[in-house]
């Protein structure tokens, strides 16, 4: 099958549409016939990454590439950056303000949840400039 590529633009603090990009991505994966358990993993990781942009950044974008072998997602944001990535990868570590926690997020599970659901994950961040989170999931060989 031909590769599918695309991009979603994300706006910081746009909580009304938070999750819409991950929802659309889920629909695209379903349309390609990707197995449901893998769709769930991709959708969860993408949603966590999308929420991070909405919560912390001014804006960002989510690029996706779907091949026969893998699904690759790259989320780049114009945000505050992460001073200590190792710390941010620990479950329960969060710098989210209370109003974000009251919405059910910011419990320090974002990056750990992305890691839990992906086969590869890289996080690059520059304080004051932004963060790029890139992850991929392998697809089983076609029958």
């Amino acid at each position: 099958m031909e590769n599918t590529e695309g991009v979603f633009f994300l706006t910081g603090k746009d909580f009304k549409n938070a999750g819409a990009a991950s929802s659309s991505l889920k629909g695209i994966l379903e349309g390609r016939g990707v197995p449901q358990p893998i769709i769930r993993r991709v959708a969860i990781a993408a949603f966590e990454a999308e929420m991070n942009v909405i919560i912390y950044a001014v804006a960002g974008m989510m690029n996706y590439t779907i091949t026969d072998e893998m699904i690759k997602i790259r989320i780049q944001d114009m945000g505050p950056g992460i001073p200590n990535i190792e710390q941010a990868m620990k479950e329960g570590y969060s710098t989210a303000p209370d109003y974000i926690r009251e919405m059910g997020f910011g419990s320090g599970m974002g990056l750990p949840n992305i890691k839990r659901n992906s086969d590869t994950l890289t996080v690059n961040s520059v304080v004051g400039e932004g963060t790029t989170v890139e992850f991929s999931m392998n697809l089983p060989p076609a029958e």
Partner: peptide, 21 residues
């Protein structure tokens, strides 16, 4: 997958969460 969510939160993110999970 395919479970019931019991929650006290009522915002749209709950629906998005349910959808992706």
């Amino acid at each position: 997958s395919h479970s019931l969510l019991i929650t006290g939160l009522t915002n749209t993110q709950v629906i998005r969460t349910a959808e992706v999970a």
